[in-house]
Design a protein around this nucleic acid. Structure first.
Length: 269
DNA sequence: CATTGTCCCTGGAAGC
DNA sequence: TGCTTCCAGGGACAAT
């Protein structure tokens, strides 16, 4: 579920609650499906207990906990993973619980169990193949051009590819292509200079707009604990008989690599 | 290397 | 109503 804007929102919400705290206790729920990637439970726990969280970062859809030991706890929520603070209602299957030195609990839950946790000394193996961050100042038109260069695949598939651009998922890919007026099936190497500029603007505008309108559900203390997409602010309602907000044409759907695209056959060429 | 298909999981919605 | 099938906002991996 979560794409760049959701993960970034979670990062911003959690950082002030977690930074400066030490990890006192780590529990991994017993389950047939492993939640830890590339590390056994004992080593994971030993590496975390006693470590102080210095801050939270994000790379693409990965959330990064910076620790004073130099190691980093990495979280990927994949489709249904959630990070719940304290008394937030438990949603989905409990996968891991982190207790901090001030009593704060952070629970990682995940209905579909696709989400994973890492504890790493180096970010390189996880991140060296991930493309540029589309919301940084440095993400210029030329970076998008390079990502699309010589690619015959549908532009939708290319902007979803984390090795080309970081953080864009199925929803925001559709939203950005609609905003840019580009059909998702268009081969990436057949996009004009003007369209390229429009897509560059559209990607940044889409993600920025999402950051502004993401829904936070308050917990019992009025603090945010869950982040959802901003359904009512979407350009493309992802349901049957939905219409284009610009021209009223019935939206069309098409699958790319097993993922459904919604688009306007009138506005997107 | 680029591209496409399959699979991992679960539960809610839609179809019959 | 009850049972079945489909589908979901991610990504690793295998096959071509």
């Amino acid at each position: 579920m979560p794409e760049l804007p959701e993960v970034e929102t979670i990062r911003r919400d959690l950082e002030p609650r977690l930074a400066g705290r030490r990890i006192a206790r780590v529990e991994i729920a017993l389950d047939r499906v492993p939640v830890l990637e590339g590390i056994d439970e004992a080593t994971f726990r030993e590496g975390l207990v006693g470590a102080r969280i210095e801050g939270l970062d994000r790379r693409g859809k990965f959330l990064i906990f910076e620790l004073d030991t130099g190691a980093r706890l990495i979280v990927h929520l994949r489709m249904t993973g959630k990070l719940l603070l304290d008394g937030a209602p438990l949603v989905g299957h409990l996968r891991a619980t982190f207790t901090l030195d001030d009593g704060t609990t952070l629970r990682f839950t995940d209905m579909r169990k696709f989400g994973r946790l890492w504890l790493v000394d180096s970010l390189t193996p996880l991140f060296d193949k991930i493309g540029p961050e589309p919301l940084t100042e440095g993400f210029a038109l030329e970076h998008l051009a390079a990502a699309l260069l010589n690619r015959k695949a549908p532009v939708k598939s290319v902007i979803l590819d984390q090795r080309r651009i970081a953080g864009i998922g199925n929803i925001y890919a559709d939203e950005a292509l609609h905003r840019a007026g580009i059909h998702p099936s268009r081969p990436a190497d057949r996009i004009s200079d003007d369209e390229l500029a429009a897509l560059h603007r559209a990607i940044r505008a889409t993600l920025t707009h999402a950051l502004q309108y993401i829904v936070r559900h308050p917990d019992a203390h009025g603090r945010p604990f869950i982040v959802d997409a901003y359904d009512d602010r979407m350009r493309l309602p992802r349901k049957k008989n939905a219409k284009c907000p610009d021209c009223g044409t019935l939206l069309a759907t098409q699958k790319f690599g097993g993922r459904t695209s919604y688009f306007c056959p009138q506005c997107q060429k």
